[in-house]
Design a protein around this nucleic acid. Structure first.
Lengths: 199, 199
DNA sequence: ACCTGAACACCGTTCAAGT
DNA sequence: ACCTGAACACCGTTCAAGT
């Protein structure tokens, strides 16, 4: 039986345990990231929010890279993935990438990290990657062509999210597009890519 | 443009000037980045390489962001841009994006920075952006559609370069593709996008 | 105008020790 | 097993002062 969440950072007398869990560390890190942005996600700030000294975190997390990688993979759990046996596999791919796009848009701070890490590498990422291959296979794209198609789709999706906030290569002459236009824009390109891939 | 580089960090007597230039600061930063990677590009390391104390850099550069932005835009000068009056504007776009892809592949460390900054914003970036619009216009894509098409092409190109080093979303099961396969892969997707854009 | 010494306000991480 | 105090080896940046 597990205890309910203690409220943020109740002061403890020395020698008393904080009762940290890896899960709670990750969760709080995620919160901090959402509220204050990537630059504010420091080990020391995270420790403070948890009411713990900075070095305590290293009992629950190997290092900061480990922490960030775990967050990146966690977010992918929010992707609404179709079953691999949907009727129309191309439509399934479309839906999968569109959902991924939405999830990434909901976490704009994380997107540059996916790029810096060149993707996520945890279990959720792996599962989604396998699903893509399964759908591509059913759409008639196999072997090396499938791996290349998957790369194109992923790159396009993450890349798009990375540039969602403001237009690339611009001196600020044009106002940023509203989110729904960006998504339309994303879906157009996605359609072209899927047409090319399955042609 | 060959440069009569003074050798790195000749010791000076106190009160003597180092003779720094913004250009030389940028150049040396670029060197440092190429040799030791992005994590090694610190103001302090750069200062040391220039034989100068860290705070001196602030006489030539507003801050580290300014420094990095300048480097990012400089690299774009290497892009082999077609003239805006090439015979076939679609082929011109293809060539422009392909050249950009090559330049980015030659500077893999910088690519995540383009993403983090959501593009470059200096004069070279601006010039290339204008050229894209001119070519799209001649290919019959105008107005809002042209801006969206440009975004798609840029996102795709930078995104691809960002993931060139190793496959995204993978647990390392497959070996990384050799560079020429990556470029083939890039060109396939580019072709699909251009076909969709100009359809 | 360019450069430096010294300092400020941070980082991530490790180590030895306490319970 | 979990947590802390103290320290190490760094950061970017600012300030006052020197030439």
């Amino acid at each position: 039986m597990s205890l309910p969440e203690p409220n943020p950072a109740p002061p403890r007398t020395p020698g008393q345990r904080a009762g940290l869990t890896r899960a709670r560390v990750l969760e709080t890190a995620h919160e901090l990231l959402g509220e204050r942005g990537i630059d504010a996600l420091t080990m020391r700030a995270l420790a403070e929010r948890l009411g713990v000294s900075p070095n305590t975190l290293y009992s629950h997390v190997a290092d900061k890279t480990d922490l960030v990688d775990a967050i990146l993979d966690d977010v992918l759990a929010e992707v609404d993935a179709p079953r691999s046996d949907v009727e129309d596999p191309t439509a399934g791919l479309h839906a999968l990438m569109a959902s991924t796009h939405e999830v990434l848009l909901a976490h704009p701070d994380l997107v540059p990290l996916y790029v810096a890490r060149q993707g996520a590498r945890g279990p959720n990422a792996h599962r989604l990657g396998d699903l893509m291959l399964a759908l591509l296979d059913r759409a008639g794209v196999t072997g090396a062509a499938a791996l290349e198609a998957r790369r194109v789709l992923i790159v396009y999706t993450i890349g798009f999210a990375a540039f969602a906030a403001r237009p690339p290569f611009e001196a600020g002459a044009e106002p940023p597009l509203p989110p729904e236009r960006i998504s339309e824009n994303f879906l157009s390109g996605l359609g072209w890519l899927l047409a090319g891939i399955t042609a």
